[in-house]
Computed example of a mutant assay.
Amino acid sequence: MDWLTDNWLNILRGFGETLKLLGLSGAIALVLGTLVALARVSPVPILRGVAIAYVTIFRNTPLLVLILITYYGLPEVGIDFGFFINISLAMGFYTASFVTEAIRSGFNGVPLGQAEAARAIGMPFTQSMSQVVLPQAFRLVVPPLASVFIALTKNTSLAATFGVAEATYRMRGLFNDYASQMIFIFLGIALGYILIVAVISWIATAFERRFAVNGR
């Protein structure tokens, strides 16, 4: 276990970078995905068209390709927030397309009468969605959103290819220094990812239970 006792601080730093990637790209995905989901159910045809195009493009484009575009392409056109932010943007925009579909399924699960009642009392579309439909939709989509963020957790490992010193990057370095202990290194790093996923699942379960109680 020399690899662990000699490098535990670097390993923790690696998972710290993983959590930073997850937090930033997850926040981008949640905000952007919610806005695109609202556009998909908007009464304005052009907004629906743009939202459909966004989901179609980003869901069907490999994440690695998007990272390459933001990592190398954005600086070429004078847009450079730093490699960490650029990679987070790629992951956030990619994941937002899946968040959009999850939230849209929540919209479909809210009884149509809820929106009709809101319009009947004079609420405009934006107000009825934000105050009536969207809160109920989020209650329904906690499990699929958790799955989306679990997938995002695993996708952060792609950042190692571009030099971000997250957990997978640290693992590759350990492989070079402790070749005879590769299986233990792999299992140890995998356990770290499993713990992150377990925390996401626990948070999702807690939210789901709380919303279920509020809904009774």
Rank of each mutant, 00 (worst) to 15 (best):
V31E: 09
G109Q: 05
F138R: 01
V55W: 00
G188H: 03
Y72Q: 06
A53L: 10
L187V: 14
F207K: 01
G192P: 04
V141Q: 01
S42I: 10
V148F: 14
L140N: 04
L140P: 04
T161G: 04
N10S: 12
I57L: 11
D2Y: 04
I28Y: 10
L35H: 06
I194Q: 03
A29R: 01
S147E: 10
L89C: 13
I203K: 01
P45C: 07
N176M: 08
N108W: 04
P143E: 04
P62I: 06
S88G: 15
F107H: 03
T5Y: 00
A165T: 14
M171F: 00
S147G: 14
G26R: 01
Q114H: 15
R13K: 14
V164I: 15
M1G: 05
R172L: 11
E17V: 13
S88P: 14
L145Q: 03
I85F: 14
G113L: 06
P45I: 07
G173S: 07
L174P: 02
A53P: 00
M1E: 00
I28T: 12
L19T: 14
Y71L: 03
A120L: 08
T5A: 00
L158Q: 07
A115C: 05
G173L: 08
V141H: 03
R172W: 07
R59S: 04
I87Q: 01
G215V: 06
A115D: 11
F107K: 02
L63A: 10
A39H: 06
F184K: 02
L12W: 08
N155M: 15
G78M: 04
R210W: 12
M129G: 07
G78S: 05
A29H: 02
I46H: 01
L134S: 08
L89H: 11
G163N: 11
T70P: 01
P135N: 13
R48M: 07
D2C: 00
W8H: 06
T18Y: 12
L134E: 09
L64N: 00
R139M: 14
